[in-house]
Amino acid sequence: MIDWSHTALTIAVILGSCLTLAGMLIWVERRLLGVWQERYGPNRLGPGGCLQSLADMIKIFTKEDWIPPFADKAVFVITPAIVVITALMSFVVIPIAPNFVVADLNVGILFFLAMSSLAAYSVIIGGWASNNKFAFLGSLRAIAQLLSYEVFMGISLMGAVILAGSFNLSDIVNAQQHQWFVIPQFLGFLGFFMAGLAEAHRTPFDMPEAEAELVAGYHSEYSGMKFGMFFVGEYLSILLLSAMTVILFFGGWHGPWLPPVVWFGLKMFGFIALIILIRAAWPRYRFDQLLSFGWKVVMPLALINLLVTGGVVLWRAG
């Protein structure tokens, strides 16, 4: 029996916090990048510049929302919505604390994988609908990259599934009460995290939107709030990646003394910071390096990891 009021409240809280966090993340990223580049970043608006995102939002809402005359108008308009919707949909299955989840699906991981695959479409059709060579090149890169990394993202988190014996994310979290899966599944964690970075188009795998060569890749032609949607979508992906990493490999909400939500939040923030640190420190890969790295290194490792984990579990089960 579903408790509608509880579900509605959960949806409201998760939706609200996701969007707020994604918005704030823009400011957080800029401040953190500033810290690591020995400068301040946005520090003028509000205490420590925390209202910067608000200002950005006002700006982006009031900007001219221009649709290029050469673009495929309908598709062009839909695309940004797909980005945000798919990213938000994934949060449906994220358990933030015990019983603090919108839908505790027994195929939670598959749902997550399905949604992140769908996100690939937004990139592809966005680039196509823009009818611009830079956008098109960006989306071509995105297709190849997403297809490659989608494959071993799934494979590398199967280890965790085998250990927990369930596709349900709450079950997986609970299975880590005593030991985080990152220890037996270190290879799986590395593979998943890398694939996640690639899925979220983050450095060092941000080729689809490489500013230096492709202007802004598949969203070059987007302006105003449409561009804002892409932007928010990207930060939602970061949130999602951090949340999934925490759930799958770092014991979710489990932790001593502090309430589960706080633990979850702290762990997530750690990964967000790591992702931003990676952006501050690492250069971008070349595209062929990215693909060959994915197929020739991470993919075999993930398969070996899966094989060994399965073997060990079978062997233990006798």
Binding site: G34, V35, W36, E38, R39, Y40, L277, A281, W282
Partner: peptide, 14 residues
């Protein structure tokens, strides 16, 4: 590289 950049957390901005 990650570590070197991380150490900048404790230096004064220019």
């Amino acid at each position: 590289g990650l570590w070197i950049v991380f150490k900048r957390t404790f230096t004064k901005p220019v």
